[in-house]
Design a protein around this nucleic acid. Structure first.
Lengths: 328, 328
DNA sequence: CAAGACTATGAAAACGATTGCATCCTCTCT
DNA sequence: AGAGAGGATGCAATCGTTTTCATAGTCTTG
């Protein structure tokens, strides 16, 4: 059925070993022979059997990718970046969606470990000790999470929050709310800390508002708390929450940005489409994905690397229509 | 390093053959022996090497999944369904995003064919002949596309359009627009035909408006054409286009649904969050994904199946806030 | 009790690639 | 011219499983 290396060898009048060497670009085969082999292989439509190769080399040519929820509009773009970069490097990627179940993450890592050369863990919700265990299963890179022995790609939350708070301060907001995401989320803890630091530096009073699920409904629910908190501006854990806020504020007759300024984080596609268009801290999502693959490839090339490598992605405040000068 | 079947065999005092049989649930091994083997395997943390198994069985335990654009909010939900069902059947899925490049699709199918047991092609844009070629590469199921020899999952567009048109007709709309998607899209051709049939049946006049890219910008651009077409209601190729319409109509001061009714197709998450919330023909996206896997598994179990199997997914009109009685 | 039928197990041959080692040839240097 | 070096190639082992076939023991049955 399928054409094997032996068929090519026979057709080209050489041994399978020579075919293997010619195709893998080894330098130990004569120019003429190589060309002959390459031509024959192409002619026969030969494609190497990955399983067989993997068996002897111990590498699969696959990467594993675990995301908490693909329906969260943040992730598809990250996945696209990962996908694209992996393909360039001739790797295929296995996708797994945990449906927001942190307990499933470690199990998936374990299951995937045998089938892939490395794993990318997106926004892992798992505990620190589980993360440690995961790292021991396979070469692993985390996205949106820093761990003491885990290489990873993170967002420069500190600078993003600094930009957001500086923007609001420049608009004369003196009392600003932060609508927090899930307590268990590393990103949320990180953003909370960053926004506090930034507020202090700018001399702005900061009030934390709730811990809401990172969904539209979370924002809807938070809106009333925001109003009650007597702030003139609010920064949301992410864009989806911010859009929820916007919707409920409008329903209550509170006009944005006249009565309240709102800033999101992520810059998902919908944010620009909403009216009013959301001011947000933009994260280069595809770039984060590419960087994660880059890190992983580096790890695979040099598995003994002692210090886990890190990569921090810069953020950029996009000022759109939901922020304005504070009302006196 | 890794624990192999031989290690388990040695530890359990049996032959590798027996271990293999015990683990694969073959009936030819004695109860006691099976338990011993299972216990030993678990104890040693044995996980079978997929590559080795694949080499001998010829099956990989992997499925390939090709989508045109993961950033299109329609697809993540479908992918989630596919993912979930595949995992239940103990399959892993390779994800590939073609970035809307139809020319890349066949190449990807070819490349993937050797690494997977079957392929799911989502909304393939490729030509009919390419699709024929693709089917010959590997067991294959198409989603959102019907081809003469291609098993696939499709949406019941006819009924969806019927519901939408009946709804508008009941609201006394007599002249309705259809904002068409890309001419090359099979779904678009299908929907156009269905909406025409439905309009005829309801005695409603139908005007086709443009062929726009299936994005927000497409809807924005179409809005002015819609107004010029003097229709009182419009059905859009999909929700994203409908949201673009809504945005531009609002900017022109045309109030929805008072001055114009708008119906989308897909029911993406954002549609419910928009204001006004979009009336739309809902497609069970995850269910489509699951059905595709189901079909593929069936195909794998019985590759000689002559008549390609089909599955049609029902749709459901969700009436929200963008449709109202036509103005006199 | 003998003979056949069955059952549980093991030995060994695959699957298709890679790679260490051996071989053979050609070239160069003394 | 002979010897040694080195480059190109082939042979065969190997990776970890599954599966066919053979074997040895147990059970049934006339």
């Amino acid at each position: 059925m399928a054409v094997t290396i032996r068929d090519v060898a026979k057709a080209a009048g050489v041994s399978p070993a020579t075919v293997s060497r010619a195709l893998s670009g080894s330098e130990l085969v004569e120019q003429g022979t190589r060309e002959l082999v390459l031509r024959t292989a192409a002619q026969l439509g030969y494609l190497p059997n990955r399983a067989a190769r993997g068996l002897i080399t111990g590498r699969t040519g696959n990467l594993g990718l675990i995301v908490p929820d693909l329906a969260n509009p943040f992730f598809p773009d990250v996945v696209k970046g990962i996908q694209a970069r992996a393909r360039e490097a001739d790797y295929s990627v296995f996708l797994s969606d945990t449906d927001e179940d942190p307990a499933a993450e470690l199990g998936l890592v374990r299951a995937l470990a045998k089938q892939v050369d490395g794993i990318i863990l997106c926004s892992p919700r798992m505990s620190a000790e589980d993360l440690r265990a995961a790292v021991d299963c396979a070469p692993l890179v985390a996205v949106n999470r820093r761990g003491s022995h885990v290489p990873g790609v993170t967002i420069d939350n500190a600078d993003g929050m600094r930009q957001a708070v500086a923007h609001l301060a420049a608009l004369e907001h003196r009392r600003v709310g932060y609508v927090a995401g899930p307590r268990s989320s590393w990103s949320n803890r990180e953003r909370l800390r960053a926004v506090r630091t930034a507020a202090e530096a700018e001399g702005v009073e900061l009030v934390q508002i709730g811990n809401v699920p990172p969904q539209f409904e979370g924002g809807v629910a938070a809106a009333d708390l925001v109003v009650a908190a007597k702030v003139s501006a609010v920064i949301a854990y992410n864009d989806v929450v911010a859009l929820g806020l916007l919707t409920r504020l409008a329903a209550r007759g509170i006009e944005v940005p006249r009565d309240m300024s709102v800033v999101g984080i992520d810059d998902i596609a919908m944010s620009a489409m909403f009216s009013p268009a959301l001011t947000t801290v933009s994260i280069p999502k595809a770039q984060s994905g590419r960087a994660a693959v880059e890190l992983l490839l580096q790890l695979l090339g040099n598995p003994g690397a002692r210090n886990p490598s890190r990569r921090e992605i810069p953020t950029q405040l996009l000022v759109r229509d939901t922020t304005a000068v504070a009302r006196q």
